[in-house]
Write a protein that binds this DNA or RNA. Structure first.
Lengths: 234, 234
DNA sequence: TCAAAAGTGTTCACGTTACACCCATGA
DNA sequence: TCATGGGTGTAACGTGAACACTTTTGA
């Protein structure tokens, strides 16, 4: 491979901050690192970028290895490049945020990677700058979710308004008025009411909704109004 | 330098999307590339990351070389990593958005780099994926400026409300009602009215304002309300 | 005194919030 | 029938948009 003369080269990795939602709380997927240095410590899922792939490709590949899922919602977060972030060798890492439906995630491969879900309040000390990555990912998710309907990526196809509200409340660490929440959410035109109900949460039962993919783009911006006092939270 | 065995390494570069504002229109700073391939074509200012620096460091170094200025507003935009983006050698580039006060920019070094300002409508075809970077930078700037007072970085210390309005109008490619604009802007508490006026624009003259650095953080979020119909623009 | 730009005031409509209320149903 | 959570109604309030109006001053 050609190179620019007298210009250094470095390892380039990707790391994935994988969020899930169990119906009550956001969860973070972590693995036990299988590589020295720091082998056996908790870590984000990551990998090195191959010569024939972009960092997006690499993130998708690594996520498929971990979860068995394809077409996961992925978004580049930030690159981390402190010269000493990996004490063994100079490595620049591009961090990606991934949002997955926790129920879709097949546990088949969990054992291979020793993966586990952690609630946001129980996140252990991670290798390198991974804790910083997680912190940034959460912040960015709040920012993004205030104006884009990304949080639906964390839910199954069918979900109820109370569950959706739980999700928003957990992401923004606040409580919403249920009346206002449901009215605002429905007013976006993004939700299609189903005929069946989820009766696990209450006697009356809550109607299921699906995301209206047709109107997804058109009403993209509407979520700005979902988060009350968004300016204080973002 | 140690390396992980059997893991490829690549060049890592930074590229800077440098925005300025001449009082009427946003401007983009470009240079004529001094390096093969594509020597002599218009390009963003960039450079390779050195072994002892982060990409932030590299961006600051490169910007100082170009403009002679330190402490410029810099923000990481995105990394670009298509395997063939640089046809000569595999290079991952981290793009940075820089906002500078065009009047502070000393033209001393312009000739060395053959730098020139271009209005947004006159941007030529650039090397590699640089046009894509510029496009993304503009989009992100709109997004960011809707909720953070970043556009002030483009103005001199003292500026008038009409000039500020021009800036917002150019960034969002729309027109604001001057009455509503000034009321909203002043209501953030970010602006300190000066006693002197700028009389170049009108007979009456417009009062100068300065940014109130004390309240800068406190009222950070307030700009959410500055852009009317922000949801349609972002 | 007029033109032109800066800046102020006022109205109306609408979105948001808070909170009271009704509904459905399993135990 | 009552407790519980789902869902609806509504009045008070605040904000944003539109636009008419006043101010200032050089020509």
């Amino acid at each position: 491979m050609p190179a620019y003369p007298q210009v250094s080269t470095y390892h380039v990795a990707i790391d994935c901050i994988v969020f899930g939602f169990d119906g009550q709380q956001m969860q973070l997927l972590l693995i036990k690192r299988g590589l020295e240095p720091m082998k056996g410590k908790w870590s984000l899922m990551g990998g090195f970028v191959q010569p024939d792939e972009s960092t997006d490709d690499a993130a998708n590949r690594v996520l498929k290895q971990l979860t068995g899922l394809e077409g996961i919602y992925l978004e580049q977060l930030h690159s981390f490049s402190a010269p000493d972030r990996d004490p063994f060798a100079r490595t620049i890492s591009i961090a990606y945020t991934a949002l997955i439906d926790i129920k879709q995630y097949q546990q088949q491969l969990t054992d291979d990677y020793q993966a586990a879900w952690f609630s946001m309040k129980e996140i252990p000390s991670l290798i390198f700058d991974h804790n910083q990555m997680v912190k940034m990912a959460r912040q960015r998710l709040r920012y993004k979710a205030a104006s884009h309907p990304v949080l639906f990526e964390l839910l199954p196809q069918k979900f109820t308004l109370p569950v959706l509200q739980n999700l928003f409340e957990d992401v923004y660490e606040t409580e919403f008025d249920k009346g206002n929440f449901s009215r605002k959410m429905l007013s976006t035109g993004l939700l299609l009411k189903q005929t069946d109900k989820d009766k696990t949460g209450s006697k009356k039962g809550a109607f299921y909704y699906k995301l209206d993919k047709k109107h997804y783009k058109k009403n993209f911006h509407q979520l700005l109004r979902i988060v009350p006092n968004a300016h204080e939270l973002i």
